[in-house]
Each structure stands twice: as C-alpha cells, then as structure tokens.
Amino acid sequence: MVKKQRISSIYFSILGICTLIFGFLDIIVAIGGQNVSIGALEIPADMFRGGWGGFIVLSSGLFYLSGCKNISEIHQFSKIVMGSVLLWIVAGCDIFGMICESIPGGEEGPWFNTLGDFLGTYAPPYPPAIFLLPFSLVVIFCPFRKVNRKDTIK
C-alpha cells in the first residue's frame, strides 16, 4: 500500500510539473499572439483559449503539486481530483469544439460534412490539454483512504 502511494505521489508530481509547464507556455504564447506548432502539439495564441485556458492548466498543475504529498489523505487526494477536473474542463471544451466543427459541411458545402472531412477535423495538431488528458484519467484508479475527522461528535 505504502509503495503504491509513493508511486502515485511521484506520478502526480511529474504530471503536475508537466501541467504547470504547459500552462506557462499557454500563457506566454497567448501574450506573444502567434500560434506555436511543434509536431502534433499546437499552442493556441488567442486570449480565451491560450490566456484563460492557460491559467486553468497552470492552476491544475498547482493543484497536482499541492496534493501529491501524502496522497492517501482525503483532502490531499481531493486536490489531485480537482487538478484533473480542471484539465478535463479545458480538454473537454477543446474536444467539444472539434465535434461542433466537424458536423456541419461548411458555408458552400453540403449540410453535413463528408466522412473524410469529418475525420480530418480530429487529426493533429492538438492543444496541450488534450495531450495531458489521458494522463489525468489515472486519478480514477488512484487508491485513497478515508481519514478520521478530528472534530468527531463524541
């Protein structure tokens, strides 16, 4: 059990640092005002997705880092969960945006997209939150134990 907790702590520390870095990059790119593409990764430069989205990714990283010590304690674990929830919000919005974009056929095209264009919408590059999404899902399987509250009613 102790070993598992240690592994979880190390895992979420690393994820926290990566998330924090991506959050910073998001904000810096948004301030710079020029999209940055590195392979399959694209950091958006618009103030909404890059600036506010970056702030949320950064906060997610801070939640991970503040919760990774003594992870089995329920309050610490709740920070890890919240870090993941913040990432899910940003990544979920990116994915929802792709879905909404992929369905209609465009201004001059047919009512609905062709299969090729529909699938093409989901091709890379992706924003950082989508890359972090699978790693944040680990929180669902993470063990935790309930702890006794100090102010019990005895």
Partner: peptide, 25 residues
C-alpha cells in the same frame, strides 16, 4: 481558479454549440 474554469467551460461550450454548430453550421 475553479470558478474561472467553470466559467471558461460555460463560455466555451456556449460559443461552440450556439455559434459554430447551430448558427454558423
């Protein structure tokens, strides 16, 4: 930060659904 994230999600879904999918689409 949680409130900001929720407002971000709120606004992002609002724009994608109402603007991109329904009106423009």
């Amino acid at each position: 930060p949680i409130a900001i994230a929720i407002l971000y999600g709120f606004w992002s879904i609002f724009g994608s659904f109402a603007g991109t999918l329904c009106t423009d689409g």
